[in-house]
């Protein structure tokens, strides 16, 4: 159950078969849909008009439809969309076009609530308002069920696209944050400082490694201070990343100090059995800096002097 709740990860709707199977959409559903289509497709213009009467009542309408040309363009797309639904053919190009529709809506930032509501209203219009009563009861029931399945499937395809686009946006954003989050800075002649904040994953560990080594090569620094006072969790994997960075800097002739080891971090690291080897560690950045300045032959001013 838990797995199914995450549609973008757990259930695949990449192909027409997968999408149909997820919504139990069968050939007889599609046939029923076609029969309803024969009744309602001729009234498609009336559908579009009524749909827009409703749409105009929404406060957001003005935002998304700034001019008449836009309205006409979207109306014709809307018409084509539903004509295709009632053709009763769900193939790959159908699925791809739904993804495109989702993408368009996501890019303009249409709230999903409006999208759901619109799909629901369209289903009501086709199955109640515009339906002429000329199907037998069984065919009508089958058609309504089929229409609901298709509308839900289309909505799911669109939501998937929404999710993908917002994930992409989030990924781009976190990449930007990531780049800002490895500010290796030369704080003194020959001394580099990298204050780490937040959680460290494997991607970030790699960024830290690359940024640190590049900066050492650029600045010819002799001492590298890695301050972890802002790091949330140091588990064995994170410790391993940090130790690797210190080993790498040493190969470039630059000694690393890990500073900012709080009592809580010191305790968890020891209990986890982490051995930092010969890496120098200090409780706070001030101690590390003072040691670094001494090593560089600078008399470090004491706090309070």
């Amino acid at each position: 159950m838990a797995d199914n709740s995450m549609s973008s990860h757990g259930t695949k709707m990449n192909t027409a078969e997968e999408a149909c199977s997820l919504f139990r959409l069968t050939d007889s559903d599609l046939a029923a849909l076609k029969r309803l289509g024969e009744r309602v497709v001729p009234k498609m213009d009336a559908f579009v008009e009524q749909f827009y009467v409703w749409l105009k009542t929404l406060p957001e309408y003005e935002v998304y439809f700034p001019d008449e040309a836009m309205v006409q363009h979207v109306k014709s797309l809307q018409r084509d969309y539903w004509v295709e639904v009632f053709e009763g053919v769900v193939d790959q190009s159908y699925v791809d076009r739904r993804a495109t529709v989702g993408e368009t809506h996501a890019r303009i930032g249409l709230p999903l609530g409006i999208y759901f509501s619109a799909m629901n209203y369209a289903v009501t219009l086709f199955s109640v308002d515009l339906y002429d009563g000329n199907l037998n009861a069984d065919d009508y029931a089958a058609a309504v069920i089929a229409l609901n399945k298709v509308a839900s499937m289309d909505t799911a395809l669109v939501v998937d696209t929404y999710a993908r686009i917002s994930n992409e946006a989030a990924a781009a954003q976190s990449k930007a944050i990531m780049e800002m989050s490895t500010p290796v800075t030369q704080i003194w002649e020959g001394i580099l400082l990298l204050p780490l904040v937040g959680l460290i994953d494997s991607k970030r560990a790699q960024d830290i490694m690359d940024a640190s080594l590049a900066k050492i090569a650029d600045t010819q620094a002799r001492i590298f201070i890695l301050d972890i006072s802002g790091v949330g969790v140091v588990d064995t994997a994170v410790a391993n990343y940090l130790i690797k960075v210190t080993k790498a800097t040493r190969l470039m002739g630059c000694q690393s100090t890990i500073s900012g080891v709080s009592p809580a971090i010191a305790q968890t690291m020891t209990e986890l059995g982490i051995d930092v080897g010969n890496v120098r560690t200090t409780a706070n950045m001030r101690d590390a800096l003072s040691l670094a300045l001494q090593a560089q032959g600078v008399a470090a001013p004491r706090v309070g002097d």
Binding site: M209, D210, L213, A214, I216, A217, A248
Partner: peptide
Amino acid sequence: RPGLVASLI
């Protein structure tokens, strides 16, 4: 070189 060091580690 930095790249060489990173891969060795």
